[in-house]
């Protein structure tokens, strides 16, 4: 079969152009913005003055929400990994003919508004709600302690919202494992738990890596959970960037903070992938 030599380019061109114009080039605009003269405003306009001090200032002012974002995202990712692994494992190996239905149910929340579901947590964790009452009754919580406006609520929201991103790649890699391998491990004197540690877990590594990245990255940039379930004390870096852009109009600081966030994430992802050693992400 002879194919046009340029067909590939023509088919690729529209999507490539769109992504170049509205995804790649904007990163340069963001970099430029981060180097704006901090004196600029929406009214007076902005100049690129290569004001590298913006980065220092941004870190100086906002190191706390930045670290908090990374910390919350890391905790939420760890919890997601545990919950997601249990669920993905159950679907892949224990659910039998129900597995495809369960998989559909995992993605179903995707199709219901992120904001509405998060608001629903506000109701579940409300001060006089069932959960708080029960925890108070069990003396897990003090009588006037609350869940809303605490890190617990924010992290619970992050876990909830990004769990499907963890389950799907985990399931994809677990499902590929040949059940006979696990039987072979049992045949070769591995107890079920050792079989899991020595066979199942290593073979699901690509899923673990993809899942943790797909959970950590959006969680670190999220501010919806912090806004709706937390208080200003749980402010994350996303809140700050959003505010600087839309309310304060401090584009230079907002740009610098965005660049810093992206740089940290890229660096972490690269270190992570190198340590974990996988090329199967793309």
């Amino acid at each position: 079969m002879r194919r046009g030599r340029f067909t590939g380019y023509w088919l690729m061109l529209p999507a490539a152009l769109w992504l170049a114009l509205f995804f790649v080039i904007p990163f340069y605009s963001l970099l430029a913005t981060s180097l704006y003269d901090p004196e600029g405003s929406v009214l007076t306009g902005y100049d690129v003055t290569y004001h590298f001090a913006n980065f220092v200032d941004a870190l100086d002012d906002f190191w706390e929400p930045l670290l908090r974002s990374l910390w919350y995202a890391a905790v939420a990712t760890a919890i997601c990994l545990v919950l997601g692994y249990v669920l993905a494992y159950a679907i892949a190996f224990k659910a039998g003919r129900w597995s495809s239905l369960l998989l559909v149910l995992v993605i179903a929340p995707f199709f219901t508004s992120f904001l509405i579901r998060t608001l629903s947590w506000k109701l579940i964790l409300a001060d006089d709600g069932f959960v708080v009452d029960t925890l108070q009754f069990l003396h897990v919580l003090g009588d006037d302690s609350r869940l809303l406006a605490t890190p617990v609520a924010v992290i619970a929201g992050l876990v909830y919202n990004f769990l499907p991103f963890m389950v799907l790649p985990l399931y994809a890699s677990l499902e590929k494992i040949d059940g006979r391998l696990i039987e072979a491990a049992g045949d070769l004197y591995a107890s079920p738990s050792r079989g899991f540690l020595k066979v199942t877990l290593p073979l699901s590594k690509p899923g673990v890596i993809a899942g943790t990245l797909l959970t950590f990255i959006p969680a670190a940039g999220d501010y919806i959970n912090a806004s709706l379930l937390g208080s200003p004390n749980q402010r994350m870096v996303g809140n700050v960037i959003q505010n600087l852009f839309t309310s304060t109009g401090d584009y230079a600081a907002a740009g610098a903070l965005s660049v810093i966030l992206m740089a940290i994430i890229v660096a972490m992802v690269m270190v992570y992938i190198r340590t974990a050693g996988t090329e199967e992400l793309v």
């Binding site: 490539a16 509205f22 963001l30 670190a220 501010y223 996303g238 907002a254 992206m262």
Partner: peptide, 26 residues
């Protein structure tokens, strides 16, 4: 091309959103 396609799925929305805004403003 494969890499560029993967990146939007791996970038925080807040960064993509602010980049795009930076472009529109600029």
């Amino acid at each position: 091309a494969n890499t560029v396609i993967f990146l939007p799925m791996a970038s925080p929305e807040i960064v993509m959103g602010s980049s795009l805004l930076a472009l529109f403003v600029a």
